[in-house]
């Protein structure tokens, strides 16, 4: 398995590695709450979920009229060994292969969860460029940026409990260095997305709601 996509993210040096217990925690999500209050019964939405598929999340979205695309991008990238940018393929080629959508049907909502914490600068930048092709004015992007020094090696899995709460499932494993994206980084890496809301949570995450312009 080739982990091309986060090769540049330094792993924590061996002595500093520590095992994390599998954690199940429920946290309030202010940004998600705002997002869900945007839904109108009369409209049909296109939602891109870049996280893992959970029945609980599907059940939650089933109350809305929508087309939900679930892509589990981290998993796709982790198991992706056909070609990579290091083989001379462009990021765009890779992302186009992994996330092929119709450009004439842009998404209304993109749920990136904490994926950006697991991408390096180039991967992040090109993913946003790719997603931009499937966004329209007003597309909202939800993400959680970690403010911690170290994060679990794999993304947290998020289950929607209700409109205001998320269940965090953290897989046990080694910790790695967190890119700790600052607001200035996000402005640079997400040029067409403007911060709509952001909230610093007690659990070390900063929730962002972006609006595509």
């Amino acid at each position: 398995m080739r982990l091309w996509f986060n090769s540049k993210l330094e792993k924590t040096p061996e002595p500093a590695k520590k095992r994390v217990e599998r954690k199940l925690e429920v946290h309030r999500s202010l940004a998600l709450n705002i997002l869900f209050h945007q839904f109108r019964e009369s409209q049909h939405y296109r939602i891109l979920d870049l996280g893992r598929a959970f029945g609980q999340n599907v059940d939650f979205f089933s109350q809305f009229s929508c087309k939900l695309h679930i892509e589990d991008l981290y998993d796709s990238l982790s198991s992706f060994d056909y070609f990579s940018p290091s083989d001379g393929f462009s990021y765009e080629t890779v992302y186009s292969y992994l996330l092929p959508f119709f450009k004439n049907a842009p998404f209304d909502i993109i749920l990136a969860w904490d994926l950006f914490n697991h991408l390096d600068r180039n991967e992040f930048k090109h993913l946003i460029l790719h997603l931009g092709q499937y966004s329209k004015k007003g597309t909202m992007l939800f993400t959680l940026i970690s403010m911690e020094k170290h994060i679990p090696e794999k993304p947290v899995q998020f289950k929607i409990v209700d409109e205001e709460h998320l269940l965090y499932l953290t897989d046990p494993g080694v910790m790695k260095k967190c890119p700790k994206w600052e607001k200035s980084d996000l402005d640079h890496l997400m040029p067409n997305f403007r911060v709509c809301n952001s909230f610093l949570l007690r659990n070390g995450f900063k929730e962002y709601l972006f609006l595509y312009e």
Partner: peptide
Amino acid sequence: SDSGGTGAKPQDSGQGRLGINVKPP
């Protein structure tokens, strides 16, 4: 925020782009 902390000031104008007014939690 639930940290009581640094919720950035929203910059949108109330009318959500999805066609509904944005409401804080």
